[in-house]
């Protein structure tokens, strides 16, 4: 419990420092005027991915003990589409809405309320989506398994793609 709160504090602190508690800043990602969302998110993914890879390789972290989000192709595709549409309407995602609310923003609290209402109603009507929810299950499948290439190769490729992405992002921002 202490660990959960401590990790949460660091998480909220990092999000607020980056400016991700600001709906206008987040929405600007989708009008290509401020790509902070992309930069923060992919830097974090690269750092944690490299850390997990190397700590695993050095034997400090047993990756078998780290929970990997499992794959359900169709519901995650459909859920992602709904989520993305909701994101640009709301301007905040579930985690960042908490940060926005914590810094005094009423729109952050409204996103939290909406999020709660969406989860509640979908949960109540769960019987009607359950079959879809459980379809196309693939278990804890990873990109290296899917593509049948070594873990390190995928890690290297993601880093390379992210670095190219950062360069493109800087260029887009300069033009905006």
């Amino acid at each position: 419990m202490i660990a959960a709160i401590a990790i949460g504090i660091a998480f909220g602190f990092a999000l607020e420092r980056a400016g991700l508690g600001s709906a206008r800043k987040l929405a600007a990602q989708f009008y290509l005027t401020d790509l902070t969302v992309f930069k923060v998110m992919f830097t974090a993914i690269v750092v944690a991915m490299l850390g997990a890879f190397w700590l695993g390789r050095l034997g400090v972290l047993d990756l078998a003990n780290v929970y990997v989000p499992q794959t359900w192709i169709a519901p995650q595709l459909a859920g992602g589409l709904l989520f993305g549409a909701g994101f640009v309407v709301a301007g905040l995602c579930p985690g960042t809405s908490c940060v926005a609310a914590a810094s005094g923003r009423g729109d952050g609290a409204a996103v939290m309320l909406g999020m709660f209402a969406g989860v509640l109603t979908t949960g109540v009507a769960f019987a009607s989506v359950q079959q879809f929810y459980e379809s196309t299950a693939r278990g804890p499948m990873t990109l290296p398994q899917l593509m049948k290439v070594p873990y390190g190769t995928v890690v290297f490729a993601v880093v390379a793609i992210a670095l190219i992405g950062f360069r493109v992002a800087e260029r887009i921002e300069r033009r905006a």
């Binding site: 998480f11 709906a23 998110m41 974090a44 993914i45 944690a48 989000p69 499992q70 359900w72 519901p75 995650q76 459909a78 859920g79 992602g80 589409l81 709904l82 989520f83 993305g84 549409a85 909701g86 994101f87 640009v88 309407v89 709301a90 301007g91 905040l92 995602c93 579930p94 985690g95 960042t96 809405s97 729109d107 952050g108 409204a110 996103v111 939290m112 309320l113 909406g114 999020m115 709660f116 209402a117 969406g118 989860v119 509640l120 109603t121 979908t122 949960g123 769960f126 989506v129 879809f132 929810y133």
Partner: peptide, 25 residues
């Protein structure tokens, strides 16, 4: 919009079993 967008994300997150933090990051 904040409330409506939040509700859409709520439904999406239930279907996908996560959101930007737990699933994406």
């Amino acid at each position: 919009c904040a409330f409506g967008g939040g509700a859409l994300m709520g439904t999406g997150a239930v279907l996908a079993r996560g959101c930007t933090s737990g699933l994406a990051l």
